[in-house]
């Protein structure tokens, strides 16, 4: 389902923060701040996770010259921890109208879509949207203890410690603007391996991107860049193969990139690349926003993918349902 935003809400400011390991990221220089301590000097991983979200919001407010919390109308955010407590706790400190969003790793985009809708409605002047993930608290949530010496296959991905948030407000011709968004449906092609998220999520990305292009009556080449969230190196290859089978040429396939596949460069110790709700968010709301502002890209499609599984569901033998949401951002 495609939504066209007639008022073209703009991304006024962005804040991206990351953990210590993310210094290895190729996007490192685009992040606003990197913290030495994975726990942000807090007692628990989850508290550190909440601090990271708060810090990203503070950076945004500083950049947009907002001194009072209450000038922000809405806070839309999510993470991957049970009941999203880090986000909820950060929202407690921020003390503004808040809805928790969950589309797994696609929350970075689904929250931006809702923020754009609220702006379009005229209900919101400033809305903060985005998502985050913290490696230690997510790994224990979905997999094994962090220090457990299990062997991960080549298809596995590394959950990033990062948060990316965007302040969405009224249209400003000098800023990147969100012109359309697609809320994806849940796609499940029967992948059951929780260490092969790329393979599970690629069909969802394919479905969302192709229906966005179809409804918008666009070609792949209308975009300077189509960037998926965290398919990883192998997932991106699968996505490209799917488009190749529907007749896309090589120069069209070159338009596709993936934040997760590029996040840690060619470092083999991260297997297939990065993942997590903070992966797409921190890349979209730092690197992509800055590239749009400098004018390198005029029109991009950001398609964040999310695997909607829980440890319970895959232990009970269920396959992994996935979703993907997309926003089209232009720069005049």
């Amino acid at each position: 389902m495609v939504i066209i935003f007639k008022t073209k809400p703009s991304i006024i400011a962005c804040g991206a923060v990351a953990g210590p390991l993310e210094k290895k990221s190729v996007f490192y220089s685009y992040f606003d701040s990197v913290v030495e301590d994975e726990r942000w000097n807090q007692k628990t991983n989850e508290q550190g996770h909440a601090m990271m979200i708060q810090e990203a919001c503070n950076i945004i407010m500083k950049k947009a010259n907002i001194t009072n919390n209450l000038d922000i109308d809405f806070f839309l955010s999510g993470d991957l921890v049970n009941q999203m407590t880090p986000t909820n706790f950060a929202a407690r400190e921020l003390a503004v109208s808040f809805i928790g969003m969950f589309s797994a790793c696609a929350t970075s985009v689904s929250s931006a879509i809702v923020a754009s809708l609220l702006t379009e409605l005229g209900a919101s002047k400033y809305a903060i949207a985005g998502s985050s993930s913290q490696h230690n608290s997510i790994e224990r949530q979905f997999r094994y203890p962090v220090d457990y010496g299990g062997q991960k296959p080549e298809t596995a991905q590394w959950t990033v410690t990062a948060a990316g948030y965007a302040l969405i407000g009224k249209h400003d011709p000098k800023l990147p603007s969100i012109v359309a968004g697609t809320i994806g449906k849940v796609v499940d092609y029967g992948e059951v391996n929780p260490f092969h998220m790329g393979g599970a999520m690629a069909p969802a990305a394919f479905d969302t991107i192709s229906s966005h292009l179809k409804k918008r009556n666009q070609k792949i080449t209308d975009y300077d860049l189509i960037m998926t969230g965290d398919l990883g190196k192998i997932g991106l290859k699968i996505l490209k193969a799917m488009f190749a089978q529907t007749g896309a040429k090589q120069e069209e396939l070159d338009i596709f990139r993936d934040a997760g596949a590029e996040f840690y460069g060619e470092d083999k110790s991260f297997q297939s690349g990065a993942s997590g709700a903070g992966c797409s968010a921190s890349v979209y709301y730092s690197y992509i926003e800055q590239q749009l502002k400098t004018g390198r890209y005029k029109r991009v499609l950001l398609c964040a993918t999310g695997a909607l599984l829980s440890p319970l569901s895959f232990q009970q033998g269920q396959s992994i349902p996935c979703t993907a949401h997309a926003i089209e951002i232009t720069m005049e």
Binding site: T155, E191, G199, A202, I234, I238, M242
Partner: peptide, 18 residues
């Protein structure tokens, strides 16, 4: 693209476990 076709693509691209 149906599930079976996709499975083929996925199996082709996913590197085999060594």
């Amino acid at each position: 693209m149906d599930q079976q076709q996709y499975q083929q693509i996925e199996d082709q691209i996913t590197p085999p476990t060594p």
